[in-house]
């Protein structure tokens, strides 16, 4: 599956459903689908908040042992992986919500990669299939 979403604003639900409904993801286990849904939402939300891009290209690739989701956007260079992980042991009073989405993504996927190339933010995440 490969699709370009433009404009980007307000398309989150549509982007998630197009990934969840594509043939590469449709037949996966409930557990893997949950994780993909969550990570797609978090990455997408991150792009919307920080990149300022008016579009995003989403591609899903499937091999026998893994599924990969790639995001590409034309916004300002922003590496979500450069942010410090949130302190998950902080007491209630000190808890912040920022950074949790990408942290969840790092924990739930088997690999996450970011690069800035040809004026594009490229974010790639892969989940191994059992």
């Amino acid at each position: 599956m490969k699709h370009r979403f433009e404009p980007l604003e307000g398309r989150n639900a549509e982007i998630i459903e197009s990934v969840m409904g594509c043939e590469e993801v449709a037949g996966l286990s409930e557990d893997i689908r949950f994780k993909i849904r969550l990570c797609v939402e978090e990455v997408e939300e991150n792009i919307l908040c920080y990149s300022g891009s008016t579009w995003v290209e989403v591609e899903v690739l499937r091999s026998e042992n893994s599924v990969t989701v790639k995001f590409s956007d034309g916004g300002v260079e922003f590496d979500p992986l450069s942010k410090e992980d949130p302190d998950v042991n902080a007491p209630l009073e000190e808890r912040q919500i920022g950074g949790l989405g990408i942290f969840l993504c790092k924990q739930m996927m088997d690999s996450v990669e970011y690069r800035f190339e040809n004026h594009r933010n490229e974010f790639k995440m892969t989940k191994r299939l059992k």
Binding site: E42, L92, R95, I97, L100, G101, L104
Partner: peptide, 19 residues
């Protein structure tokens, strides 16, 4: 069935109010 970090944010606000 599902919560993303956006839902966690609400649970956190609720817990802070209760505490």
């Amino acid at each position: 069935e599902y919560t993303s970090s956006q839902g966690l944010r609400v649970f956190l606000m609720l817990q802070k109010a209760v505490s």
